[in-house]
Design a protein around this nucleic acid. Structure first.
Lengths: 363, 363
DNA sequence: CTGAAAGCGCTTACAG
DNA sequence: CTGAAAGCGCTTACAG
């Protein structure tokens, strides 16, 4: 129940002076019940959209609640009932922009539904991660937890949540796909499609920079790349595959290896934008023009991808939408489908073809 | 009280089987009191580090609590007492990375002190902002609110918080400096120093791109620029001052105006990195080399500032530290100094001199 | 369709 | 130094 604050005229600085029977502090369920001439149980029913309230009664209660600016106390609700109206977002990601976008989507959906979002840091792999997570679950009685990469692929984290019986949704998980509800995009398909774009431009010798193996997406993107190359009948030289870790710096290093000397690929597909930007920087430093001498593409469509020149060809992830969907599933409690299996929502991506890719140079 | 989960050996998946008297659900204060042979009041005292508990008693309680994996229920504490152990972060900022960094700092400090961070969107200037904010304060009983720019400069937001008696700290406020506790850096001094760097390189004709007037920092940065120019006895042509709004696109537009035609400045100081990146992109598109033909510098040191080539000369803000400090003030309740005035914490910045600035071209 | 009672797990006075 | 009682503001069974 989203109760709009009424416009009583004097709605500026001072607390309402004209409001009927303004007690100390905010109105409680007792104030509303008294003013509406019903029991607190009836007010509770209206609050929670329960059935079995006469239409007139319901309207009267809503009206009084609105006039008294009544807001149910979240702590009391949580203590008495089984819901806390709190969703947790577990954050453990080096890419700040990615997390911020996720959070934006989650906050928006929470607000729509009268929920609040608690942001919690989590350090995947740290010795006390499990203990801290358990503690937080007890502290807050969360109605649901949103797991972001790479925490969503941490087996210990999954175990703790399952053991605690905490409802959770994973965003873009990389392994154990069917283990719990998740929201994701098809990384392999996107990488496949983007590789197709490079092939269509005429590239045959393409380097690939892999992301952090801890993120499942890293492997999926590489698989999509390899599949597209194989389908096109183009061989991938083993030394064209370079390990990175999704960081700008690792892109710089991988590109140095790929672009050193005359025997170099005509295009580089980096597993994410940060590494792609590192590759572009390296190319420039080596005196190579992008895309004149070498094409570069990335994955994620970060703000920086549009900020550099040439602008980066990349894949737009539905980040905000994924988080919204995850929060929505948690709030609705629909983490299981009709056949008792964990829900999996697949959201659409979009290839952003920009200026960092062009046909290969004529030899 | 941060109670470490005990290492009972079987700390993997299954809930403790060897733990003494494991009731349904997590242990409560009654379980701890019973097991320690004291009243719940004594447990409460230990929990809250209150005095008047014998040392032996305190140790016994801590030990039992730890063994039972006891965590005080936040809802019950909040309902019974005056604290919620919840800090709110009000988010209304187009720069995702900035917010994410702030949040990182706030989360870290909250975790240290046994608090949790609730992230809430706020739309400065929207018609229902005040009502939503009030509603949220009643919902959550926050122990404190962290206000980020530009929300920290919204007079309506300030009024609502003051009227509700909610403790709050502003981060990098731009106006009404003494109105409430705040944490900030000296934007004017930083802009002054960075302008000095350009002057020292030999630049005399410098363009400046202003940020969003809604952010107070925009004006402070421009003031620092002007002051440095005036002190050096260098005049600033009025048409060298261009209005932007902190967005990449506005940097593109402003730079187009500044760099069109041969009568152009030898350097551009953008009010933030995003606009600086837009300016670099425009320069490149116009066939101008950075820093060969024109130097560009920004403000903020965003990740993208290090990602572009040439890397951006800019100012490193102590963003994480500001948020940590803000959360710390709120948790300690020290928003007022000895003389009854709002606390103001000034944190140090750092000039990052990189490759986007160089001496002006010889004519 | 409506309500009286009990209780969620703590803290706040207050008494000893 | 320690504890018994009351109460925070709701929801959960249960009764009518």
């Amino acid at each position: 129940l989203i109760i709009q604050a009424p416009d009583l005229g004097g709605d500026t600085d001072t607390p309402d002076e004209t409001a009927p029977a303004a007690p100390r502090g905010p109105a409680t369920i007792y104030d509303v019940a008294a003013a509406a001439g019903v029991s607190i149980k009836t007010v509770s029913r209206v609050l929670n959209r329960e059935p079995n309230v006469r239409h007139v009664t319901r309207e009267r209660v809503v009206d009084v609640a609105s006039r008294l600016r009544y807001r149910p106390n979240a702590s009391a609700r949580s203590l008495a009932g089984s819901r806390s109206y709190l969703i947790g977002l577990l954050i453990d990601n080096p890419s700040l922009g990615y997390v911020a976008e996720l959070q934006f989507g989650a906050m928006a959906r929470c607000r729509q539904e009268g929920f609040h979002l608690v942001a919690e840091p989590i350090e995947t792999g740290a010795p006390d991660t499990a203990a801290r997570l358990r503690a937080m679950l007890v502290d807050l009685h969360l109605d649901g937890v949103i797991l972001t990469p790479p925490a969503c692929d941490d087996l210990e984290v999954l175990s703790v949540l399952e053991a605690a019986g905490a409802p959770f949704v994973r965003i873009a998980p990389g392994r154990e796909p069917g283990r719990a509800a998740c929201v994701r995009m098809d990384d392999a398909a996107a990488a496949h499609e983007l590789t197709g774009l490079l092939l269509q431009l005429g590239h045959r010798d393409i380097g690939f920079i892999l992301g952090d193996p801890a993120h499942g997406a890293a492997a999926a993107r590489c698989a999509g790349f390899k599949a597209a190359m194989a389908e096109a009948g183009v061989e991938v030289r083993p030394d064209r595959l370079r390990q990175g870790d999704f960081s700008y710096r690792s892109g710089v290093l991988a590109a140095e290896a790929l672009l050193a000397g005359p025997d170099r690929p005509t295009a580089i597909f980096a597993g994410n934008d940060d590494m792609a930007l590192g590759a572009i920087s390296t190319a420039n430093r080596l005196g190579l023009s992008v895309p004149g001498d070498v094409s570069v593409c990335g994955f994620d469509d970060t703000p920086a991808a549009r900020a550099v020149w040439p602008r980066l060809t990349t894949v737009r992830q539905p980040i905000v939408e994924m988080a919204q969907e995850a929060a929505g599933l948690l709030i609705a409690g629909s983490m299981i489908d009709d056949r008792g299996r964990p829900v999996e929502r697949l959201l659409a991506f979009r290839i952003e073809a920009r200026e960092s890719t062009a046909p290969p140079p004529r030899t």
